[in-house]
Each structure stands twice: as structure tokens, then as C-alpha cells.
């Protein structure tokens, strides 16, 4: 029988770098050009099945980026197995913010937490302010996973989550319940978007 794991993942990063869009792409394979800001935090789940049939279910907490919501963040990263810290490759200030988050995680979060640094918006590479070399070097120094993504095109999104899914079972001991109760018998639950009611009348007009 294949192994099943369940891990808690938290997304952190400056406002408007694309955290919610990244999750929406990963969980629903969708993208909205206009995505409303996240208030507080949103919860979604997605299951990744690896080549060896191991399934890893992510319980994803997508947090709000504005500084004033920062005091809520510890609640979401406290028991997290992994964190994806997102920056916007077109905004160098967002990498600085990511560094701040990473320092906080290194100080406050579980010492075994797997941290991935994620440069989003590669579809806007023409306006790039953060080079791959710079980010990659920093990630190596700090022992972080690193990748670039475009939530808009989907480029790199599954790669980064799959890489985390492969790494986690090797590093972080799965939580007790994660090991005993996976998605067995039940179809993988698709995530639920916290911030939007599924009112279909909203959809046709977003052109």
C-alpha cells in the first residue's frame, strides 16, 4: 500500500506578490487577472501524488500580506511543516520582505520546517528587478529551497510544490494524524477558496 502523508504549509510574503494566485494555480489550476486581497488567512488543501505513488496532502494556509496582519502569522506557521515565502521578481523590495519572513521563521517556527523561497511573476520577466543569481545565492546560504514561478502561466508552480512534497517525508516526521489518516478511500478534496463565494454571476464579466 502506498504511503500517505499530510503536511501543513503556510504561505508568507509581501502584499500583492501573488501568494493567493500561486495557491489558486496549484489547487485549482486557475488564474484570475484580478484577485482580491486576502484578509486574515485562507485555508485550502491539495494532494500531490508522487511517482512512487506516495501521496502528500498539503493543508495550505494562505496569509494576508499587509504588515498589520503580521501578528497573526505565528498562529499559521507555528505548527507548519513547510513554508513557501513568496516574492515578486519585479519588486526588489519584496525580496527584502521575504528575507524578513525567513529570519522570523528561522527564529520562531519549528526547527525542522522546510522553507522554500519562491520568486513569482516570471511572466513579467521584462520588468525583472531580482536576478535569479541573487535569489539563488541567498537561498543557498540559508539552506532554503528555491524556485521561480508564474501563477499566471502556471510555469514552475507544480514543480515547487512537488519538490516540497518529495523533500518533506525525508526530513520532517509526518504528524501522527498525517501518517494514519490520509486521503485513502476519499477522493482528493479540492481546496475551498475562503475569500470568495462561488457566485457564478460574477464570472462572465471579468473580461
Amino acid at each position: 500500500m502506498s504511503k500517505q502523508y499530510q503536511f501543513k504549509l503556510v504561505l508568507l510574503g509581501e502584499s500583492a506578490v501573488g501568494k493567493s494566485s500561486l495557491v489558486l494555480r496549484f489547487v485549482k489550476d486557475q488564474f484570475d487577472d484580478y484577485r482580491e486581497s486576502t484578509i486574515g488567512a485562507a485555508f485550502l488543501t491539495q494532494t500531490v501524488t508522487l511517482e512512487d505513488q506516495t501521496s502528500v496532502k498539503f493543508e495550505i494556509w494562505d496569509t494576508a500580506g499587509q504588515e498589520r496582519y503580521k501578528s497573526l502569522a505565528p498562529m499559521y506557521y507555528r505548527n507548519a511543516n513547510c513554508a513557501v515565502v513568496v516574492y515578486d521578481i519585479t519588486q526588489s523590495a519584496s525580496l527584502e520582505k521575504a528575507r524578513t519572513w525567513i529570519r522570523e521563521l528561522q527564529r520562531q517556527a519549528d526547527p525542522n520546517i522546510v522553507i522554500a523561497l519562491c520568486g513569482n511573476k516570471t511572466d513579467l520577466a521584462a520588468r525583472r528587478q531580482v536576478t535569479q543569481e541573487e535569489a539563488k545565492k541567498y537561498a543557498e546560504e540559508e539552506g532554503l529551497m528555491w524556485g521561480e514561478t508564474s501563477a499566471k502561466t502556471g510555469e514552475g508552480v507544480n514543480d515547487i510544490f512537488t519538490a516540497i512534497a518529495k523533500k518533506l517525508p525525508l526530513i520532517a516526521p509526518p504528524s501522527a494524524r498525517g501518517a494514519t489518516r490520509g486521503a485513502a478511500g476519499a477522493p482528493a478534496r479540492t481546496g475551498v477558496d475562503l475569500n470568495k463565494q462561488p457566485v457564478a454571476q460574477n464570472e462572465p464579466c471579468n473580461c
Binding site: S15, A16, D32, Y34, R35, E36, S37, Q66, K196, Q201, N202, E203, P204, C205, N206, C207
Partner: peptide, 19 residues
């Protein structure tokens, strides 16, 4: 700056026909 970021992605909930 934050106001700009948020107004840039406003009017999502109540859709507007024309860009």
C-alpha cells in the same frame, strides 16, 4: 502604496462589464 495595491485589484466582487 498599499492603497494603490488594493485598489488595483478592486471591483472584483461586483463585476464591471467594461475594463
Amino acid at each position: 502604496h498599499q492603497i494603490k495595491l488594493d485598489t488595483e485589484r478592486s471591483f472584483v466582487l461586483y463585476p464591471v462589464d467594461d475594463v
